[in-house]
């Protein structure tokens, strides 16, 4: 039963991930990514990592991808905007990095290596659930990285607020070059209307 389910979820995951990069429509790609996250959650469930599985769905499929979709839908991306590094260069780099990753995966599979420790100090496969174990190790042993990550997120949030508020009437700053030089009216977020 379990191997069968694993193969089913894994096949779904691989198929969806391929569709994410192969599909032309960005919205459909994003939806396949949601499906990929959900099948990944299924694999976590098979590994008795119920908490991680549910958090995977809540955080990635439920929150992050909604915001992603939001941006993709409402920016109305018609085609890839050609900016920055030349497209041929990017494509070449992609091929090389992809080949390296594939070789690494093949090597690991051939040598039966696992990325990261195969066993942890806490017995996470206990049938009573591992939420308690995760909470305890997160708030004792891994407290510092956990807090540092939250500070990182906080900094990103503050940065986003500063960027969004930057051109409001409260902040005195030169209008960007090429902006229609009128209306310093009451707060309109840039790009509204």
């Amino acid at each position: 039963m379990i191997p069968f389910l694993f193969v089913a979820f894994a096949a779904l995951l691989v198929g969806c991930s391929l569709m994410v990069i192969l599909h032309k429509n960005p919205v459909t790609s994003a939806l396949f990514l949601v499906l990929a996250f959900c099948s990944l959650a299924g694999i976590y469930l098979l590994l008795h990592a119920e908490f991680v599985a549910m958090v995977q769905v809540i955080v990635y499929a439920g929150a992050i991808m909604v915001l992603f979709l939001f941006v993709i839908m409402y920016l109305n991306l018609k085609r890839d905007v050609e900016h920055g590094v030349h497209i041929a260069l990017r494509r070449g780099a992609g091929w090389i990095l992809g080949a390296l990753l594939l070789a690494e995966g093949g090597l690991m599979l051939a040598r039966r290596w696992a990325p990261g420790p195969t066993s942890t100090e806490a017995d996470l496969s206990a049938p009573v659930g591992n939420t308690l174990a995760i909470g305890q190790s997160l708030y004792t042993r891994y407290l510092f990285p956990f807090e540092v990550t939250s500070i990182l997120l906080l900094v990103a949030m503050v940065g986003a607020v500063v960027i969004a508020k930057g051109r409001g009437p409260g902040v005195h700053r030169e209008p960007p070059a090429g902006a229609s030089g009128a209306t310093r009216g009451p707060a309109h977020p840039p790009g509204s209307e």
Partner: peptide
């Protein structure tokens, strides 16, 4: 299941 409440939150977020 031992994560029933999280399942509810996950479903409402979907």
């Amino acid at each position: 299941i031992n994560v029933g409440l999280l399942l509810f939150l996950a479903m409402s977020s979907l």
